[in-house]
Design a protein around this nucleic acid. Structure first.
Lengths: 203, 203
DNA sequence: TGCTCGTTCGGATTCAACTCGGATAATCAG
DNA sequence: CTGATTATCCGAGTTGAATCCGAACGAGCA
């Protein structure tokens, strides 16, 4: 059990298991999954699951990690472009990319993200937060006049955490009270207002 | 099964079950609970659980509802006082009350709240959001010059959702990067900056 | 071909949710 | 007060899902 895949076909099996787990998490949530479901979706026998994974939780862990690393892979390449933009434009661009990512594959990732906030999983989210924090930091480096802002780390903390949660929740609403475009406008406006106001006061 | 309690002692039993479920959720999360645990903590036999609850999920539901209604009972009475305060003061007062509430009973509610973000439970949260929305609305009524602000519902949506999540997450951190006081300052500052900037532009 | 070892499988085992039938306690009619 | 009736409580036993395990399969190699 929990052995390393050594041949090509077994690597494919592991991948199929992770993919099947992601799909199952998306449709039923991590606690409602059965091992049989995963095995069936992956097209293998139940016993085979336990060749590569200690138990069901290990499978869910692997799926969560896949989810997080795919998200980080979305954010990282955007940084060089975003840091050159105006705050509102940068946020708009980031949020639209994020939305498109979440909506891919019939909302596979969005439906996983809905379950990612149970705080057990927050540990795995930290790479996502780090990536966004890096974006924040690099943005500041490219706009040195912003370094005067008070409470930068705390603002980033509020903005990143609150922002992720709000976007995922908004995209999950059956009857959103506002469009995604309105949300991006407000996201930009709130941060830009804070920045303008504080720069004004400081300078 | 799922009968109505008719005698005093059975009401106490139901209450003990809900309380035990809250404690169990707080310590292990809703999916890891076993029926035996709940029964044992409540000081009753396993069978008794099923006298008043359809199944384990019904018990967890009841506990969630208790959590939500206790939270609403915290917010509602604060509204009349908060609407008379300055934005920063109001937010500070609200956040400190909220923190104290979450930290009561050895963080019972905080530890439950950590699990409340798995989106299954978001349905039950809506009364909390409604209560905060009412606070928002009543605040605007008492400060009519604010009604000029653009995108009020969306700002409220972002602020309430992001705010709740960020506070719960902050209080759950082992090594918070900032104090709770700093967080409340930033919360107040961000909203006040937005308001100031927009009122300035509009008037 | 026959051997070996990585891989796959599904029946056997374990464990938790839930049921059932009867014991015990409260309530009430006479 | 007593027996009948109803409410409550219980925990051994049933059921089904998670996990384990030993046999079967097949690719590579002598």
């Amino acid at each position: 059990m929990a052995r390393k895949p050594k041949q090509q076909r077994s690597k494919a099996t592991v991948d199929a298991i992770v993919q099947a787990a992601l799909i199952s998490i998306a449709s039923h949530g991590p606690s409602a999954i059965t091992a049989r479901q995963i095995a069936e979706k992956a097209g293998i026998g139940v016993g085979s699951l336990y060749e590569y994974f200690e138990d069901k939780d290990a499978i869910i862990d692997a799926a969560s990690k896949r989810f997080v690393s795919d998200t980080v892979d979305l954010i990282k390449p955007l940084i060089p472009e975003l840091v050159r933009l105006d705050i509102r434009e940068a946020i708009e661009k980031l949020l639209f990319s994020f939305r498109d990512f979440l909506e891919e594959n019939n909302q596979l990732y969005l439906r996983c993200a809905r379950h990612a906030f149970s705080m057990d999983m927050v540990i795995y989210q930290s790479p996502i937060n780090s990536a966004l924090m890096e974006l924040f930091t690099q943005y500041l480096m490219h706009h040195p006049q912003l370094l005067k802002l008070p409470n930068i780390p705390t603002v980033a903390y509020f903005y990143i955490n609150g922002g992720i949660f709000t976007v995922v929740r908004h995209l999950s609403e059956d009857n959103p009270i506002q469009s995604f475009e309105e949300l991006t406008t407000v996201f930009g406006d709130i941060l830009a207002s804070y920045v303008d106001k504080k720069v004004e006061l400081a300078g």
